[in-house]
């Protein structure tokens, strides 16, 4: 199985860091993965996009035209990258930062109030983890335990509290993604 995911938002929203973590965890879990970033010259505020491919066989080209999954974290990326999703693909959308109506009718949509949920859980920084959780819960592109193991490793130095916060965020996202899949 091969799954291609585009993650997009604005610089500073954790687009690149979450993409690297996801792809890196897949490799640690014995899968093949590539991470391809694309960003403008801005350090913050510009548009940020990365493409992550996770596959059980070797990845030949890391440059697909369209993806199986798309996470959009803000309005600009929602407008810009929704056409890059395959028909039948899944869109996970941060509805706290996307305002315009969805025009496509040929894709699955999981709406996540990621900013609100992150705030409720106690940190505005974990919206990206909630969105990834929703994507994993809906698509099954990677075993969430494999991804959580890499988060544990990544945040180990920051203490058990930070790890726990990330676990809660991931679980919240998974719950939303799985519920949307069943609906």
């Amino acid at each position: 199985m091969k799954f291609t995911l585009i993650i997009s938002g604005s610089g500073g929203q954790g687009v690149m860091s979450i993409g690297m973590s996801l792809a890196g965890s897949a490799v640690e879990g014995g899968m093949h993965a590539t991470f391809m970033p694309l960003y403008g010259p801005e350090q913050r505020g510009g548009s940020a996009k990365c493409t992550v491919i996770v596959s059980d066989s070797e990845i030949v080209s890391p440059l697909p035209k369209q993806s199986d999954g798309l996470i959009v974290m803000n309005e600009t990326s929602f407008k810009k990258f929704t056409p890059e999703l395959k028909p039948g693909g899944v869109l996970v959308r941060n509805i706290n930062r996307t305002t315009s109506a969805l025009k496509r009718t040929d894709i699955e949509v999981v709406d996540v109030p990621a900013d609100d949920l992150a705030h409720e859980l106690g940190s505005d920084k974990i919206a990206n983890i909630i969105l990834i959780g929703a994507m994993l819960g809906y698509s099954g592109m990677l075993d969430p335990a494999v991804f959580m193991a890499s988060l544990e490793h990544k945040f180990a130095a920051k203490g058990a509290e930070v790890v726990e916060l990330n676990r809660k965020a991931l679980d919240k996202g998974l719950e939303l993604g799985r519920a949307a899949k069943k609906a």
């Binding site: 690297m20 792809a23 991470f35 391809m36 990845i59 890391p62 440059l63």
Partner: peptide, 9 residues
């Protein structure tokens, strides 16, 4: 630039 900035195994 793709090969420089991409990550893989």
């Amino acid at each position: 630039g793709c090969l420089g900035t991409m990550m893989e195994e």
